[in-house]
Design a protein around this nucleic acid. Sequence first.
DNA 1: CTGTGTGCAAAGCTTTTGCACTACT
DNA 2: AGTAGTGCAAAAGCTTTGCACACAG
Lengths: 122, 122
Amino acid sequence: MTPTQQRVEIAQILFARPQHLSAEQVLSLVNAEHTAASKATVYNTLNLFAQKGLVREVIVDPSKVFYDSTTHEHHHFFNIDTCELTDVPVGLMPVGELPAVPPGTEAVAVDVIIRIRNTERS
Amino acid sequence: MTPTQQRVEIAQILFARPQHLSAEQVLSLVNAEHTAASKATVYNTLNLFAQKGLVREVIVDPSKVFYDSTTHEHHHFFNIDTCELTDVPVGLMPVGELPAVPPGTEAVAVDVIIRIRNTERS
DNA sequence: CTGTGTGCAAAGCTTTTGCACTACT
DNA sequence: AGTAGTGCAAAAGCTTTGCACACAG
């Protein structure tokens, strides 16, 4: 895994601060900078990072993957109106120990997504 | 929402028994029957059902949406090796009450997905 | 006859794959 | 010089939109 120009760029954007970025946003940000990387490279790199555990994939919608630079255990609010993703500190909602996973398997990750919506005042 | 031929077909498949079907699987099953519906209709109908609360969408992967005919509150194991989705009875893993949602919003749904993997014996 | 609603073909978008190139051994 | 690894163009796939048709009022 060579630290190439493109990867460094992407990493800097991701880890500038804890945040949730969609692939689309990362792409824009990378291209807003100087070097620019192709769409494919951004996707491949993000997938690579996700595999390596550098970022966490948060899947809220088909074709709407967010990449979370915070890898600590935590959950998410997802506002389906604004497509905004918000962290939920672990403390607020502890995850009970996992129930027995099916035989021959091991837990890899636990994703908790609370879908929220703007309160409609009709 | 007219109970048309296509919708009845799809509904019968979904509610034949509690199960998790991907859009792809539903499409195959519908076409395996007699009438057959187009891909678009299946997608639209599934989305429609999901909106109406008849089925629950379970999003485990981009371009991998499962439709769950069980609408009771429950969680899921997702085997990333086999792409198999399994129910987790609510009792086994209670969801603590939700932490305060952001102001002006209301919780719509809570999705808990435990990603599991086949234990590798190297 | 007009309006509402449905089904499907075609388009759109995200994501993935395969190839040419680069850098290193 | 060979080999491994990277970046990107092009392809693939899922999903959504827009239009023609059918039915109800």
